[in-house]
């Protein structure tokens, strides 16, 4: 038996390319180029690792605007067999509740045995979507996964989980949602021929909310949370003094210890 492995990927503003707005002196995210969420590359690598272990298919899925297709092309270049774009205006304003519902329904539609996600996204950093997918479907979950061990003979996937101050090895029944610890699973480079295929020939399957039967269960209206005030935080003032010799540090250290 081989497994169907779905990978959730998201397009985010490139955190490394976020410039400073010359008028306000603050970070300007709107003009940053859109890229694949860094932790999702590690999720892709984990998915490909599982495929290497059991055989099967890796299918990347993203929920986003039509131009999010570029992250699917990247996923295909890295080695995904196929990819799905889940796109609909009805998704606008979704918080993590409908977002994880959407991905949960997509995973069901793909008949996924395993769903692999990044630990969190760099633009909203909640980490709530992977457990949310598992919860919507009543599936098992393995978050903060540092290593994976497919056990098709047991119908289970085992993972080494980082538990802050240690680790644990947990085996979970399929279907299972895995969230990969960001520092593990160094992504493999995409071979040139796959890059060319991804960019030129590959077309993702496209699903809207209706295709997943959730047109009344997404968007702002079903999102329990909303964003209220946004306050800019004044950066912490630091002296920013560079000293030439360690002796220059002795007085400030002595002051702190006094």
């Amino acid at each position: 038996m081989t497994w169907t492995i779905a990978v959730g990927v998201k397009q985010v503003p490139d955190a490394d390319e976020v410039g400073i707005d010359p008028d306000t002196g603050r970070l300007d995210r709107a003009s940053a180029p859109a890229v694949m969420n860094g932790p999702d590359r590690h999720a892709l690598e984990a998915a490909l690792t599982i495929r290497d272990q059991v055989g099967g298919e890796v299918i990347a899925m993203t929920m986003g605007p039509p131009n999010a297709t570029s992250v699917l092309e990247e996923a295909v270049a890295m080695g995904s067999d196929d990819a799905v774009l889940i796109s609909d205006r009805a998704f606008a304003g979704s918080d993590t509740w409908p977002t994880s519902l959407t991905l949960a329904r997509a995973a069901e539609a793909l008949e996924a045995d395993v769903v692999v996600c990044g630990e969190e996204t760099t633009d909203s950093s909640t980490g709530q979507v992977p457990p949310g997918i598992a919860a919507h479907n009543g599936w098992a979950q393995l978050t903060y996964a540092e290593a994976v061990d497919a056990r098709p003979e047991e119908g289970r996937l085992a993972a080494r989980r980082d538990v802050e101050g240690g680790y644990e090895l947990v085996a979970a029944e399929l279907p299972v949602v895995v969230a990969v610890a960001f520092g593990e699973f160094d992504p493999r480079p995409a071979p040139l021929h796959r890059k060319i295929y991804g960019e030129n020939d590959f077309e993702p399957t496209v699903w809207d909310a209706e295709a997943l039967g959730i047109e009344d269960e997404v968007g702002l209206d079903v999102s329990p949370t909303s964003v209220g005030r946004m306050e800019t935080v004044d950066p912490v003032e630091r002296k920013g003094e560079v000293v030439d010799e360690v002796d220059g540090l002795l007085e400030p250290i002595a002051e702190v210890r006094a």
């Binding site: 240690g166 644990e168 947990v170």
Partner: peptide
């Protein structure tokens, strides 16, 4: 639906 096989803290 899950089982902890090892745990070391």
């Amino acid at each position: 639906i899950s089982e902890v096989l090892e745990r070391e803290v």
